[in-house]
Design a protein around this nucleic acid. Structure first.
Lengths: 334, 334
DNA sequence: CCTTGTTGACGTAACGTTAATTCAAAATAG
DNA sequence: CTATTTTGAATTAACGTTACGTCAACAAGG
């Protein structure tokens, strides 16, 4: 394909001029007439800039990587949108990777670690990455931003504690007294449980222990079964994540527990699916889109060597979306 | 960071030797002792190859793009796995893009069109791409493979017609007589409807018209409502896609239609979610993982200039997964 | 002892860009 | 009319790799 050299020849100008036309560089000046001549030559030859040569010269690829711990998880939809959009505004493209396949020596990791692949890395699911993988990544010369609470890295996250609190307080206000928390593993789940505890404490109720059954539909089903085995069965549960909520609904159906009449359910994280389940699930919507955008901005701050604003995103707060899966308990016990 | 030049200096050898060590080139030979000396120098300096320079030199980026029409769609999970795996085996990384954001002039498209970005392109959802976008892509010097039936491009696809046939025949064999097809738009949906028609014809039943309500949960709900307005209500429906099936279940619940007692439902495409819905959905599993692998292989055939095996994948056939959403009709009419 | 072959390595020209430097010609100032 | 500035452009040196061509040293063959 045509290169700048070909265009220069066709337009009867030097390489420098073509480059200046392509980039709009102010350093090399030219008459408007030569500019249009170059432009026409580019048009005729179908010139397309060579991204690779550009990257080599500039030591910048206009590409950032995002590593998620489960690409399939629908909660990442809005996150991805935010990231793609903000990246596009920075002229960058996003390389998506799954934490599951990030083993030491894997293709994707090797690629990431080599120079000139990406300008920066966004990671959600740091906990799922092996320590040696994280160590290798840490040696990467380009900045890394964690989309989650992190100790030894710049990070940014949504307010998981608050989400747990909001979900729980809603149930408390509906006058539920026996509320359990069906959770997963990891820091996120702990934070949400913390919020649950705080809301329970504030209401003078005793928090139940964290039923950490893991992640996904099966985890939700397991969690519900465990919860129902307690001495006094709960009248409401807060479910740590959205896929677990699907499992809770299924298990409730299988166990003959009517939702919301016998058991109220509030999920954390909201996705389209929640409104299409029956009963439609009341859930706490997290600002994942904004997390994506804010993550990219923070990463570009790091890339540019500017101080980066991290921490918990509080501007759009987690927001309760009331649907049909939670109601006041029919019989209020003790 | 360290370059081959630095390594060469540290190991007291020439650039050529370092390059040979990195690539295992046979042209430039060396003693085992020098090889290990170079290796040690690389280790000490933390040398990482520069992917950009390599790409420029070789005119090959070891990256392929995959464009999907809705990244969120869970049916793409296995497809993505297949593609990522097969790509990794070819030493390549996958750049994921959404057809929705592929407008003329968009960041991602511009990036794709510039030289030295990817070695080839995989597209599913060609129909959703604007004609001018496709025209621009067609001018791309690197090969393009469509993961769908296509007229003017190499293509490869799963057997959608067969899936429609399998779903319908299953219902016919359960002795349903009034079966409708709730479909979407586009070629895929047409193919599935065609399979439906064939199965109906084969059973001596008259096919109902294609209820093409679109894509997603709402489409399923709309489809069901339309279907139930017919003079003689159907006893079974084949749902074009999995997200629509969710909508059908919800709408049935809202309308007080019991599934499967009053209405049997079979979905096309199977995802984890289907087994966690209540009732669990009987669905036709499509070999999407294999499609992903086969797509990458076919693309690399094109890249290497080899003849590429395209067409419909028949080796793993679409397979019916029987769950709880379909049963024999309680009353067989006419 | 000369010829030929092999081993082990080195030098260097690209790949396509960008940006610093240089420079002739034209325009303006004094 | 000369001195100086501005305009419009050309030359060229990187960026880090890879692979072609070259070549000295040494070994083996006749």
């Amino acid at each position: 394909m045509a290169t700048q050299r070909d265009v220069a020849r066709a337009a009867g100008v030097s390489l420098a001029v073509v480059s200046a036309v392509v980039n709009g560089t102010s350093h090399t000046r030219m008459k408007e007439s030569t500019r249009t001549r170059v432009l026409r030559a580019m048009q005729e030859l179908g010139y397309q800039p060579n991204q690779t040569a550009r990257s080599l010269r500039l030591n910048q690829t206009d590409m950032i990587a995002m590593i998620l711990n489960k690409l399939d998880n629908p909660v990442y939809g809005p996150l991805r949108h935010g990231v793609y959009e903000a990246a596009a505004e920075h002229g960058a493209t996003v390389l998506l990777g799954d934490a599951e396949t990030m083993r030491s020596g894997s293709q994707f990791l090797t690629r990431l670690l080599s120079q000139g692949t990406v300008d920066g890395i966004l990671i959600r699911g740091e906990g799922l990455l092996d320590d040696d993988v994280m160590a290798e990544l840490r040696s990467h010369p380009k900045p890394i931003l964690i989309l989650e609470h992190a100790l030894d890295h710049p990070w940014i996250d949504v307010d998981d504690r608050r989400a747990g609190e909001i979900a729980t307080r809603f149930l408390v206000n509906l006058s539920h007294r026996h509320i359990v928390f069906v959770g997963g593993s990891g820091y996120l789940s702990q934070q949400r449980y913390l919020g649950y505890q705080q809301a329970m404490d504030a209401a003078g109720l005793t928090p139940a222990p964290h039923l950490a059954t893991g992640f996904g539909e099966q985890a939700g089903a397991d969690g519900l079964r465990q919860a129902m085995q307690a001495a006094t069965a709960p009248t409401a549960i807060v479910v740590n994540n959205i896929m677990s909520a699907v499992g809770v609904l299924a298990a409730a159906r299988d166990l003959g527990i009517a939702i919301p009449d016998q058991l109220s359910v509030v999920g954390i994280h909201d996705v389209d699916l929640m409104q299409h389940l029956r009963p439609a699930v009341t859930a706490v919507r997290m600002p994942m889109y904004q997390l994506g955008r804010a993550g990219v901005e923070a990463l570009y701050d790091l890339i540019a060597g500017r101080p980066s604003a991290g921490g918990v995103i509080t501007d759009p707060e987690p927001e309760l979306v009331i649907r049909d899966s939670a109601t006041a308990p029919t019989r209020i016990r003790d």
